[in-house]
Amino acid sequence: MNDVICAILNRASEPRLTAPAPDQATLDAAFQCAFTAPDHALLRPWRYLVIEGEGLHALGELFADSLDANDPNHAERCARVRQSPLRAPMIIVGITSYREHPKVPPVEQAMSAAVGMGYLALALDAAGYGAMWRTGSPAHSDVVEQGLGLADHEKISGFLYVGTVERAKPRVPRPEVADKVSRWPHTDQ
């Protein structure tokens, strides 16, 4: 097998991340990989924010601000979400930046942005770092979008937590090809 196939087959979402985070040269190479995502009409419907250091604390505050103040467990939930960005030394926010186009519907643009996030995670993994793509309610919050400075035509694709793998988690079993792949039209034989 070639290096690309091996990298994909060995990739895993790693929730236990610590410093160091990737340096700028590694990030630049990984972003160049993300920019190769399939992109109908070359709209480039994505952009990214890199958050580190004190920015992680500010992101936690933004997450807390997005919670429903009427929730009876509000204080407990706020304390928990304030800490969630501190699970890694770096978070890369993937943003789908929708463009009006007669032949490229929004769903195709969202898929392009998602593939870019996947390529970014693969590239960072190949460079020796771990990554965990997270979404959850902060990824769908108007408060978080506004706090991060998203424009009206933009949505969060996800939060890619990035760092050095502290302790690899057990390998996740993969499905058998025959359980998930079939041919069409079906032949009766």
Rank of each mutant, 00 (worst) to 15 (best):
N2V: 03
V4T: 12
I5D: 00
S13N: 02
E14G: 02
P15C: 01
L17T: 03
L17W: 02
T18S: 08
A19D: 11
A30R: 13
F31C: 09
Q32V: 01
C33R: 14
C33Y: 11
C33S: 15
F35N: 13
T36E: 13
T36H: 15
A37C: 06
D39R: 11
H40I: 05
L42T: 06
L42Q: 15
R44S: 12
W46Y: 10
R47S: 13
R47W: 06
R47C: 13
L49D: 00
G53R: 03
G53V: 10
E54D: 11
G55T: 05
L56A: 02
A58N: 04
L59A: 03
G60F: 00
E61S: 05
L62T: 04
F63R: 00
D68H: 00
D68F: 01
N70W: 00
P72Q: 02
P72E: 03
H74G: 01
A75W: 00
A75Q: 04
R82H: 04
Q83G: 01
R87V: 05
A88W: 01
I92Y: 04
V93N: 03
S97D: 15
Y98S: 14
P102Y: 06
K103N: 13
K103M: 11
V104N: 11
P105N: 15
P105K: 15
P106Q: 15
P106N: 15
E108H: 12
A113K: 14
A126Q: 14
A126Y: 07
G128R: 09
M132E: 04
M132L: 15
M132T: 05
T135F: 03
T135Y: 05
T135P: 00
G136S: 04
G136W: 01
S137Q: 06
S137P: 03
A139M: 08
A139D: 08
S141Q: 04
V143R: 09
A151S: 13
D152V: 10
K155E: 13
I156Y: 03
I156C: 04
G158L: 08
F159R: 08
Y161A: 11
V162R: 06
V162D: 07
V162G: 09
G163R: 06
K169A: 14
P170R: 13
P170W: 07
P170H: 10
R171Q: 14
V172N: 12
R174D: 06
P175S: 11
E176K: 14
D179W: 05
K180I: 14
T187P: 00
D188E: 09
Q189A: 08
